[in-house]
Amino acid sequence: MEQFVQQLINGLSLGSIYALIALGYTMVYGIVKLINFAHGDIFMVGAYVGFVSITYFNMGFFPALLIAMLFCAVLGVVIEKVAYKPLRNASRITALITAIGVSLLLEYVVMFFAKAGVRTYPENVLPNLEMTILGVRITFTQVCIFAVTIALVILLQFIVHKTRVGKAMRAVSMDKDAAQLMGINVNNTISVTFAIGSALAGAAGILVGVYYNSIDPLMGIIPGLKAFVAAVFGGIGIIPGAMIGGFSIGAVETMVSGYGSSLYKDAVAFAILILVLIVKPSGLLGKNTREKV
């Protein structure tokens, strides 16, 4: 039982990271219907910005977090304006290939400047505390990651459901043309979405850097892919879905490693994804839309 709870906690802290990345995926998908494959790499850039600000500018955790989020938000908007906006009316597959191009570009530009090797965050960015409750070990960093994730998700829900920008986002994601007719500035709304989504990825990047202490230019590929899986799993385009998806994937992975074979942990995650899609093609929280002729 103790071990089970411990594994659950392990899964939740891993899942928080997936959830943060998945949120960005889902928001962008919801509004422009684009699988933004560069999202995982924005997460990587966030980790590097955090690394630079902590190691070279001796910043604390929270200033570095803010800077990484800000930098990624700007990067996200620039990418959207330069690479995706001209393709808004193109076929979705064209935009997808462009996103893959941007993803490779980010990876290898960072690799060119920072080299391929790992970089390590300094120790003790966050106090190295831990507590043991009934034999279950929880570290301060784990609590922080979980808290930051939950706080950001609540903030996000607030923005989307209670503010004018959020209303505009929901309108644009429902019907772009109608929203425009109603006087919503579609371009700005999309930019804001990219900014928020990328900022979340940046936050995830610095959290990974602090928690695991290791970053490299290709670190975004696998978490990016898994976050995408998480987003689809929960129902792509739905914010709570992405969070549930992220936590589920994290939990499945740790449970398979903990009670089955770690050799097949990723395979099981993908197999569950396929099963969920077959049973409920629009994801866990997705609404089945009726086909119209």
Binding site: Q3, L14, Y212, M219, I221, I222, G258, Y259, S262, D266
Partner: peptide, 19 residues
């Protein structure tokens, strides 16, 4: 047990072998 290149979280496997 096994992991793949790029994995960062090994807590699940380590919790399993701990005892």
């Amino acid at each position: 047990e096994a992991f793949i290149k790029g994995d960062k979280d090994f807590s699940a496997v380590l919790t399993k072998i701990k005892d």
